[in-house]
């Protein structure tokens, strides 16, 4: 039996559809990441699951019990969920211990102390009981917020953009920490984020949301290699998209003609398409008659990233070059494929 089941949930604010036919399923121990740009409805989904928003249609089930539908709305305090907010929302007038105990209503005082100790060890901050939120760094506040939500043994933990308030150095550490803390605690988790790297590295499964709809719901590697449509591809990959035409089983584009892979599986063999060119699919090679030129070179330590522009169109492609490259700005080049894999194509009208 799944822990959480959302079945075609709808929610509108005025005439803006925040959630449109959203269905997800979370099993014990799962980590689900909901990815999307800000305003796509992912936070609304999280808040609907937590009970801070009502839903217009559909159903949300927790452990088989309906908590939200167009008729029913179980209040957040009665759902036994844990939530870590984007701003962490630690109570500023309480120390760490009181913050954690706040959620432990049914425990006696000895149990409370023990549980506080346990969760502080779990988040690797033992001995922080008497600190106040303002005495903690951003990363520590986040871990305390996580400890606070884990303490009452919730059915499910909801994380709303947990890393957006951390700087990039802290972020990598916290990402690893969080993953192992969640694994250790064995609690199912839903994580909402706009950061694809975050989502790919932490989650077991991924739901990509665009304009209130879940466009793809699958394992991270599947989404990475086979994004279902142009919007998903744009959201989850480092790629450029150029226009092309299907012709005789090949796709013609400004880079040449190549074998392709039809993302929908049912495209007209002669039609206009969008071709996805991933980072590093092509290499720039010096060619005095080339149709492209080097417009910028970024040094990345172990390699260069070279941006190549077309003379004729606004197309530009990034390629990865080794440190001994002889390319310089304005060098005329041509682009050659690195491997013979087919290029992913999407229907033009999307």
């Amino acid at each position: 039996m799944s822990l959480l089941k959302c079945s075609s949930v709808f929610k509108a604010f005025g005439n803006i559809e925040a959630l449109c036919d959203v269905s997800i399923d979370v099993n014990p121990g799962d980590i689900l990441a909901v990815v999307g740009e800000s305003g796509c409805g992912k936070t609304t989904l999280l808040r609907a699951i937590a009970g801070f928003e009502t839903i217009d249609n559909g159903e949300i089930n927790i452990k088989g019990q309906t908590v939200s539908s167009d008729q029913i709305h179980v209040l957040p305090e009665n759902r036994n969920l844990g939530m870590v907010f984007q701003e962490y929302s630690l109570f500023p007038h309480m120390n760490v211990e009181s913050n954690i105990i706040f959620g432990l209503r049914s425990y006696d005082s000895v149990e409370k102390k023990n549980r506080v100790k346990e969760v502080l060890e779990l988040v690797r901050l033992p001995g922080y009981e008497n600190r106040y939120p303002h005495e903690l760094s951003g990363g520590q506040q986040q871990r305390i917020a996580l400890a606070r939500s884990l303490a009452p043994n919730p059915t499910l933990i909801l994380l709303d953009e947990p890393f957006s308030n951390l700087d990039s150095v802290n972020r990598v550490d916290m990402l690893n920490d969080l993953q192992s803390i969640i694994r250790d605690s064995q609690i199912a988790t839903i994580l909402v984020t706009h950061d694809k790297e975050e989502a790919f590295s932490v989650a077991d499964s991924l739901a990509v949301m665009v304009d209130g709809k879940i466009n793809q719901y699958a394992k991270p590697n599947e989404i990475y290699f086979y994004p279902k449509n142009y919007k998903v591809a744009k959201l989850v990959s480092n790629a450029e998209f150029i226009s092309g035409n299907l012709n005789n089983g090949l796709v013609d584009c400004s880079l040449g003609s190549f074998p392709y892979f039809d993302s929908t599986g049912k495209m007209n063999p002669v039609s206009e398409v969008i071709v996805m060119i991933r980072f590093g699919d092509f290499r720039a090679v010096y060619d005095p008659n080339g149709n492209f030129f080097v417009s910028s070179i970024e040094f990345k330590g172990s390699h260069y990233i070279v941006t190549v522009k077309s003379f004729r169109s606004s197309t530009y492609i990034k390629s990865i070059e080794s440190l001994d490259t002889n390319l310089a700005i304005n060098t005329k080049v041509n682009l050659v494929p690195v491997n013979p894999d087919p290029l992913l194509v999407f229907p033009k009208n999307h």
Binding site: A50, L81, G82, E87, F102, G103, R105, R148
Partner: peptide
């Protein structure tokens, strides 16, 4: 007062008046 604080308290199984007295009044 960030309303997320109240949300967080509700999420920790506190009902309306409990949150009012333990979060809103002190803050």
């Amino acid at each position: 007062i960030n309303p997320r604080l109240e949300d967080a308290a509700h999420g920790m199984s506190h009902n309306y008046f409990s949150v009012l007295f333990r979060i809103n009044v002190p803050l």
